[in-house]
Amino acid sequence: MVFGKTKTKEPAKKAGFVKRLRARLNRGDSWLTYDLTKLAPGGNIDADVLEELEAALVMADVGVDTTERIIAGLQRRLDRKELKDIAALQEGLRRALSDILTPVAQPLVIAEQQNPFVILMVGVNGAGKTTTIGKLARRLQDDGHSVMLAAGDTFRAAAVEQLQAWGERNNVSVIAQQTGADPAAVIFDAYEAARSRNIDVLIADTAGRLQTQAGLMDELVKIKRVLARHDPLSPQEIMLVLDASQGQNAMVQAEKFHAALGVTGITVTKLDGSAKGGILLPIADKLRLPVRFIGIGEQADDMQPFDADEFVDALLSTDNAAQDS
């Protein structure tokens, strides 16, 4: 089943989400379009305009390498006399961003199978893993799946309590043990419980860790190995949760977690904060990892499947467009 495709009320909710996304990505000065009109007040596009656009992209967390790729493409169009005015530049930029993001806009697919479909949630402290788990559990239930949660963050008692609160809110069972228990054992116990109860999806929380903490990263590898020992296909999804406000550090996190675990999907949170949204571009450009969801707030409807075209429209919308959409 393609996740998020079965609800009849989804279009209306998605429209509201897109409007909020535009507004929140464009708080204050729009990070691209507003500046484009300033870059070429006379309407003429030249190398100087592209140079200033390059600086704007880098400042918006797009990263040097990805920015250079985008600007090189625009420069070729300029050389062919195809960028005659601001409208042509905006359309060229839109196409460049869409070309990067469209291949990674891949929805989470819950395959029908005999054993539980296991989603292993990973990421650094503060990225929003537990909140994402709660929202994901709700959406999976709405799509008709039975869900169980595994409290694999055994380092913090508050983490278990937070997950249990989400479980109670969604009427979902949470498998937990005492603080300090072996996370791999907790998650395996949850897997066995989910299998015995014919649960469709098991979502496993893990302790937040910095990508530089080798011992804790090894622990995630152990969890993955223990699950695969009992089901070679498990975990079916290793979802990395990234805080968009971390900027280029989020890119480093994605590289490290992917190298250690083989990340299969990404959820980007906190696009409603200080983030400028650009960090999705270098992640898509360099790692080609599927982006499953993006989040712009605390409510369940503030997390939606990633749509590349809608995201690019939100990035390039002016303040007025964001308000009027």
Rank of each mutant, 00 (worst) to 15 (best):
K84Q: 15
N170C: 12
D285C: 10
L220I: 09
V64N: 02
K81Q: 15
P232W: 04
L74I: 09
G126Q: 07
P290K: 12
K81I: 02
G134F: 10
T318C: 11
A254D: 08
L140S: 13
A194G: 08
T67H: 05
T154L: 09
L315D: 11
S245A: 15
T318H: 10
G180T: 09
G144H: 03
D205T: 08
I187V: 13
R77P: 01
V201D: 12
Q114G: 09
A259M: 08
V241N: 00
K13I: 15
Q253N: 10
F293H: 11
Y191V: 07
Q253E: 10
A88W: 03
I283M: 08
F3K: 08
T206H: 13
R24V: 10
D46V: 13
A259C: 00
A214I: 15
I133W: 11
D324L: 14
G152K: 02
K270P: 04
A284T: 04
R22E: 08
Q75H: 01
G262C: 13
D231F: 07
R288C: 00
I100T: 13
Q177S: 09
R292M: 04
I110S: 13
I294W: 07
N198E: 14
G126H: 01
R94G: 06
P103C: 09
E310G: 06
L32I: 15
I133G: 10
A244W: 09
H258W: 12
L36F: 05
T132C: 14
K9Y: 09
D85C: 05
R225P: 00
